[in-house]
Structures are given as structure tokens and as C-alpha cells.
Design a protein around this nucleic acid. Sequence first.
DNA 1: CTGAAAGCGCTTACAG
DNA 2: CTGAAAGCGCTTACAG
Lengths: 343, 343
Amino acid sequence: MDATPRSKATRVTLRDVATEAGVSTATVSRYLNNQAALKPDTIREVERAIERLGYYPDLNARALATRRPSTLGAIIPTTENAIFAEGVEAMQSWLMARDIMLMTVSTRYNPDVEFEQVRRLVAHGVSALMLIGNARPEKTIQFIRSHNIPFCTAWSFQAESDNPQIGFNNFEAAYQMGEKLIGSGHRQIGIIGGVTHYNDRATDRIQGIRQCFADHGYPIDDDMVLETPYHPEDSAVALDHLLAKAPSLTAIFCGNDVLAAGALHRAHERGIVVPDELSITGFDDIALAKILRPQLTTIHLPHRFMGEMAAQALYDAVINHEPVKSLEIPFSIRDRGTLRKPD
Amino acid sequence: MDATPRSKATRVTLRDVATEAGVSTATVSRYLNNQAALKPDTIREVERAIERLGYYPDLNARALATRRPSTLGAIIPTTENAIFAEGVEAMQSWLMARDIMLMTVSTRYNPDVEFEQVRRLVAHGVSALMLIGNARPEKTIQFIRSHNIPFCTAWSFQAESDNPQIGFNNFEAAYQMGEKLIGSGHRQIGIIGGVTHYNDRATDRIQGIRQCFADHGYPIDDDMVLETPYHPEDSAVALDHLLAKAPSLTAIFCGNDVLAAGALHRAHERGIVVPDELSITGFDDIALAKILRPQLTTIHLPHRFMGEMAAQALYDAVINHEPVKSLEIPFSIRDRGTLRKPD
DNA sequence: CTGAAAGCGCTTACAG
DNA sequence: CTGAAAGCGCTTACAG
């Protein structure tokens, strides 16, 4: 009758279930998608067959047939940074509850890798894409747009960008931290920021703090601004440089909490008491911030919430075929133990 | 001219390319898989058509047709713990270089969720699966086995398990840390471990340290052993409990670095000097370990390496249709600043 | 309520 | 070297 081609993993297919149940594949399919009302008897037969055979549908084949969304993609710089890891995990949970898979890949902050990942994910059939931030070569967004794939950027919200964004205003957050520093009496500070190359979060944070100090009449010199990778050791070295150039600095604004942790650690090694002799501020409020001594004064962001909002925005866009709606996420300053007025 | 673009992406298919190039789909497909030697003219035409149309293949359709592996799956407890995040990122890089996607999902340490994720991933067509540890309801592995899907467990290596494992011996590592503690003169210690329910790493670590102390004649009382979630706050509370019950403890063995960080933080808050008045040991050697003050004495594991090895083992199994080969990964103790002989 | 058939985007014997 | 055709595992008008 049927010459079944032998294949390695002998998968149980819809057809097998149909045969077993003595119905057509269409009927089994209908059962699976509980479309039409099937006859109770039929339902029972199908259920028994599925049970007996241990059948489960091939989601890729289904996606091919329906062309309905089954996977979304998230491309983040690195999973090592807890903020992205948490955000993406929240996205995943949210989507999974709606039967959609999230494919997550990372770029290690390399825009070429990011482009490559976009291509891969698109080739793998993701229905929508989340990227981090707005700074990247034009071709990346062009590629996504040309393939008509809904997307949003996240962790950054810039009025000047015309990407759909689910993020927060990094510039403004840094600016407010600046006002806090100035309010506490700091006039001469150093900056240890992330590498700004193709990283708008790092860029905005540095510009925000500088703009604030400039606006208040205390412009920050270029050589008081250092960029380093997001590693504590690099930040430690940066602190040494800053202090060598300007021993009279009273505070260090750090581009994120990891950098702040590194600076804090080095300050301690040098016998500098924080915050008595030197204030240090962070950014992101990762779990680490509350474990350090003193606890970090930093900027709190609802990373999980942001992930969920991104998931929802993409989901809505994909389901309703609407454009992705932007959303600005609020931040807040957590004033803890590393900021104090200078002597 | 052409119909208005549908809201849903109108995909450029192989057939479009074939038409554009004036050849059959088989020929385009052959070009893509550079199988047979095509005529140079043909190649040029196809290349031009692909270029012109911006074609890229649908990997899911290809997977359906070839039944060759295109995705693997990794199921981890949480991406919040850097050790898994790093390991999985390393896996992903390794596999991507070989044109295979890695789908990563997390379970939040819940075995029911894990089972559900296994089903999902299998339904999504992953060719192989990596799970963390060996402790889980039987049905999970049974399900995987019954579907003929190669798999391995990781981050744990237990002689008694018959799962293919790419991991390290948690019991032995904890045992060795115990010898270090005893060698330093500690006789009465407390344990703050992870929740052992369906977590063999947490279980083995606690048993390893207890066995060691028992073997040396200093058995550890049950009420000196606390289990808590992997959060610093929980660990802080645990430390309070331990010290309330036994103020004379000279050291605390923690189930991982996060727990150690929490205990360290609380010790400081209570005015206890570490390691002078109390020693604290960690496990995992995450980045945090070197930022804390003092730096954590802990157990170092090559997480990225482990991820790569797992990727390779699965890849080999899937490509060569061989059983997955187990591999025991070595660990080493990093003696830093939180362990010292008691007064 | 249910089946036969066409189709989703690919690949691959089988011929020529 | 290349094409026609069957097939991968599904779904869904179209009939009845």
C-alpha cells in the first residue's frame, strides 16, 4: 500500500494519527485547531489515536502552512549583562503564554554580527524582531523593513529616532543624575562611560551628564571622560587615569553599575573612602547594586517590564497587522550609599 | 503594476528566483546547496536573480524538506544566573559558526515548566537538547528518549547517572572546599545552600561539604544547614538564623557566589569582619566574586568552555548519529580573600 | 460534520 | 548539466 520511506527520527505525523483514527488528515487538523465542531465520536477517536501514538504537531510545518506567527526574535548585545537577560526572559514568558517562541541571539556589541543575526533570524522565519538601541548601520533596519518585518528597538527612547521604540530616555536619566550631583555640591567630576561606538545608550548617558553640568556652569573637560568596555577591571584602570589627571575630583559618574562596581572596588584598594572622599554613581540598578558596600546610588529601570512591553508591542503588531507602537518607560533614581556631598 | 503589498510579508521564494533567472527551482536549489557543478552562465543568472530579488532561503522549509538538523535547544533554570547565560552564549556562538541555531528557554527551576519547555522545543523541531543537571521527573527524559532526540545534561557530572553528561562533580568540588576549610582550622561551620528540590547541583554541594566534615570527625548538624533561593537577601536572612543558633561558627559554606555575596553583605552590616571573624566561601566564580570586598574564595568553573563542549557533543551526535559522549569538566579552587584560619 | 486536493517553500532521486 | 515531479508535515478553501 504505502511505501513508507525510512528516515532516521521516525516522526509520528498527522497522517499516522488520521490512519489510526480512521479519519482524514483534515479532520485531525480540525481537531487540533478546534475549528469546526466535530462529532463527539470523532473527537474521541482522534484523541485516542493521538494518545496512543504520542503525537505532537510539527510547529514549523504548521507555520509553513498557515503563515501565522510562531516565533519572534530578540537580538541583544550580550546575555552577560543581567539587564538584557532579565528583559528577554520576561519577554519569553509573556510570549510563551501565547504560544509563541522567542529566539534570542547576541551580538557582543558588534554591529556586523548584529546584521548577520538579523539575517539568520529572518531566514529562520521570525515574524517580528526586537533590537537594542537605535545606533547601527542603516542597512540593518533597511533589511528588516524591506522584508516587511515588524520590529522595535528597546532600552532606549530617543525623540529623534523614527524607529518604534520601547525604551527610556538615557540622556534625561543621566541629566537628572547630574542635577542630583550638582545639588549635593559636586562641581568637578569624572565620567567612566561605556564604549559609545554604535551604542546610543552609552552615548546618551555621557552626553546627558555633560550637558547637565555644562548647563549649570560646570562644563566637563574631554579628558575627564573615559570610555571603557563594561568590565570592572577596565573601570578600575579608568579610575586610576582620572585620579592621576585630576586628584581633586569629588565624584565619578559611571555608565552602568558594572563600571561603578569596578570603580568602587579600585577606590577601596587605593584607600579612598566612598562616599566620604569620593562619590560614585551607577546606572541600571542590577542586583549587584544592592550587594556592594556601600550600596550603589544608581538609576532604576524596570527591565522585566520593558521586556514584557516589547513583547506585547511586537505581538500586537504581528497579530493585528498594525504598526508597532512606541512606549517611553519611566526611570527613577535610587539614592543609596555612594553619593554624598563633598567635604 | 504589482498588487499593493499585503500587510503580511510577501516573501520572495525560490520559485521567484527560478522564474527571474529562467531556470527551474531545482537548479536554484542546487546553486544554493552548491551540489552539482552548474554551468557558469547558469550560476551567473541565478546569482543575479537572487541579488535582484533580495532572496534568502526559508530555513524552516528547508529543514522540513531535508530533515537535516537546523536548530538545537537549551533549557536552563534561569538566564539571570551568569553561569548559564555565559555557557549558553558560548554554545550559541559555537553552533552558529556551523549554521545551527540554538533555541534557549528557561524554567525558573520548576520541573513542570521544564517538561513543558521540552515539549515545545521538540515540537519546534530541535534536533537535540541540553538540560541542566540530572534531577527531574522521569517522564521528561522518557519523553525525549521516546522521540529519539539526542540530549545531554550539563553543569553536573554524577557517576551514578546514566544520562550523557557534560559537567563537573559538584560533590567533589564541595568536598575539596571542605578540606580547605578544615585545613585552615575550621571545625564548626554553617551551610547556606540552594534549594535542593529537583536541583542536583545544590544537593551535591551540600552533601559534599557535609560528607567531608563528617569524614574528618566534625559532622555538621542538620540545623546548621539552610536552603534558600539564590538571592542575596535570602542568604542574609539565613546568616542571621545560623548565627542566632550558633554564634561560635567560624565559617559559612555557601552554595553559590550570589549566596556568598548576600552573606558577606549581611556580615558587614552586623559589624562582623570577614575573614578575620568569619570565613565565607562561594561557588561558581562569577564576575561578581572579584568585585566584592574582600574578593570571594570560591570554586572556579569554565562555564563558557562547558557550553562549547556541550554544543560540540550534541552537534557530533546529531551529525554522526552517534550516542552523545559524556565529559567531565575540571574545577579548581580560587583562594582569595574570604577564607582564613579562625582565631 | 467530513474528505479530497491544492498549497506553504524547499530538496532530491529519477530521467534525459 | 538541468528539469519534472514527488514529498517533507501541516492547513484550508471547496464540495458534498
